[in-house]
C-alpha cells in the first residue's frame, strides 16, 4: 500500500516535471546581448532587463543577459555572443547592431533559424527590416540634436553654439548637426565649435575655448556640449565670461554635477536617451510577441530624446538614486 502510494507520487512528480519542461519550451526564452555592466550606461540597461524579467518569468519564460568582456573587439565579440545565443536554442534575441559589417551575418543566421529579433540601442528600422528583425528600440542622435535645438528655440535662444570635443566622430557630428537644424527650424541660428584634439579631456582648455568664443561673439545665447563632463567645463566658461544670465547651457547626457546645475537653474536642460527604457521595452515587446503574438505598430520605438529640465529634475534625481537614470 505504502509502496503503491510512493510509486504513484513518483509518477505524478515526473509527469509534473515533464509538463513544466514542456511549458518552458513554449514560453519566450530571450537572450540580451549588451555591454559591460560596470559601465554606467550598461548598468541602466541591465536594470531594464532585470525589471522586464519579472513579466517574462510570470509567463513561464526566461531572460539571459550575455555581456561583452571588453570593448576591444566589439563587432566580432558581439557576433560571437549572437552565435552563443543561437546554440543555446533561445526563441528571442535582443541585440545592438554596433558594427553591422561584423554582426549582420550572425543576426541573419539567428533570424533564419526562427529566432525573433529586436535591434536595441544601435541600429535603425531599415537595418531591422533588412535583417528580418521585428523592430528597432533605441535613439537617434540626429533627432536628439534636433530636440536640443528646438528646446533652445522654444526657450527664446537665438544663436546656439554646439561644442564638439570629438570632431569627426559620426555620433557627435550628428548631434551637433541636429542641434543646428533644430534651432534653425525654430528661427534662430547655430554653429559648431570643433575643438582640437589637444583640448580633449582638459576642462580648463574647454572652459577657456567657450569663454573666448562667447567673448568674441556677443550674439551667442545658448551653448550645448556633447557630453556631461564637457558641460562642467562649459558652465565654468560661461561663468567666467560673465554671461550666466544671458547664455543658457544644455548637454547631451548628464552627470551628478549637471543635475545639480539643472536643480539650481545654472543649466537649462540635458538630452537623455533613457537607456533603461531601451532594454525594458525591447525585452517585454519581444516576450509578448513570442508568447501572445502581439505586434506593436510603432516602428521604430525611440526611447530618446528625453529632456531633463527644472520641470522633472526631482523625479529624475529619484530615478538616479534607484539606478534607472
Amino acid at each position: 500500500m505504502t509502496m503503491l502510494t510512493t510509486m504513484t507520487k513518483a509518477f505524478a512528480t515526473s509527469v509534473a516535471i515533464c509538463l513544466t519542461a514542456a511549458s518552458v519550451a513554449l514560453a519566450a526564452d530571450i537572450a540580451v546581448v549588451g555591454g559591460k555592466t560596470d559601465d554606467a550606461f550598461w548598468s541602466k540597461i541591465k536594470k531594464g532587463v532585470d525589471d522586464a524579467r519579472f513579466v517574462v518569468e510570470t509567463n513561464g519564460g526566461k531572460v539571459t543577459y550575455l555581456q561583452l568582456q571588453t570593448y576591444d573587439n566589439l563587432g566580432p565579440d558581439a557576433a560571437g555572443l549572437v552565435r552563443t545565443a543561437i546554440s543555446q536554442g533561445v526563441t528571442g534575441l535582443v541585440v545592438p547592431n554596433w558594427v553591422p559589417e561584423a554582426e549582420d551575418e550572425a543576426i541573419k543566421a539567428a533570424a533564419d533559424s526562427g529566432i525573433k529579433i529586436i535591434l536595441m540601442n544601435a541600429g535603425s528600422l531599415d537595418k531591422a527590416k533588412e535583417l528580418g528583425a521585428i523592430n528597432y528600440v533605441g535613439s537617434d542622435e540626429y533627432l536628439a540634436g534636433i530636440a536640443g535645438g528646438e528646446y533652445f528655440g522654444k526657450n527664446g535662444q537665438k544663436n546656439v553654439l554646439c561644442v564638439n570635443t570629438l570632431p569627426g566622430s559620426a555620433n557627435q557630428e550628428a548631434r551637433c548637426k541636429g542641434v543646428i537644424d533644430g534651432i534653425t527650424k525654430a528661427g534662430g541660428t547655430g554653429k559648431q565649435l570643433p575643438l582640437p584634439a589637444t583640448s580633449f579631456g582638459d576642462p580648463t582648455a574647454i572652459a577657456e575655448a567657450v569663454k573666448a568664443t562667447l567673448t568674441q561673439d556677443g550674439s551667442i545665447d545658448g551653448v550645448i556640449t556633447i557630453g556631461a563632463g564637457d558641460a562642467d567645463a562649459a558652465a565654468s566658461g560661461i561663468q567666467q565670461a560673465g554671461k550666466v544670465e544671458s547664455v543658457k547651457l544644455g548637454s547631451f547626457d548628464f552627470n551628478e554635477a549637471g543635475l545639480d546645475r539643472i536643480k539650481n537653474s545654472a543649466q537649462l536642460f540635458a538630452v537623455d536617451q533613457q537607456p533603461y527604457l531601451q532594454s525594458l521595452l525591447s525585452v517585454s515587446l519581444l516576450a509578448s510577441h513570442i508568447d501572445f503574438g502581439t505586434d506593436l505598430p510603432v516602428k521604430p520605438v525611440l526611447t530618446g530624446p528625453g529632456i531633463v529640465d527644472a520641470s522633472n529634475i526631482e523625479s529624475t534625481l529619484s530615478g538616479v538614486s534607484k539606478g534607472a537614470r
Binding site: S199, G201, D202, P203, A228, G229, A235, S236, E256
Partner: peptide, 20 residues
C-alpha cells in the same frame, strides 16, 4: 585643483596632458 574648481571629476580626463 580641477575637481575643486569644476565641482566634478570624471575618470576619463587628462590624457591630452601627456603629449601637451
Amino acid at each position: 585643483c580641477q575637481a575643486i574648481l569644476f565641482n566634478s571629476a570624471q575618470v576619463s580626463a587628462g590624457m591630452s596632458f601627456i603629449f601637451n
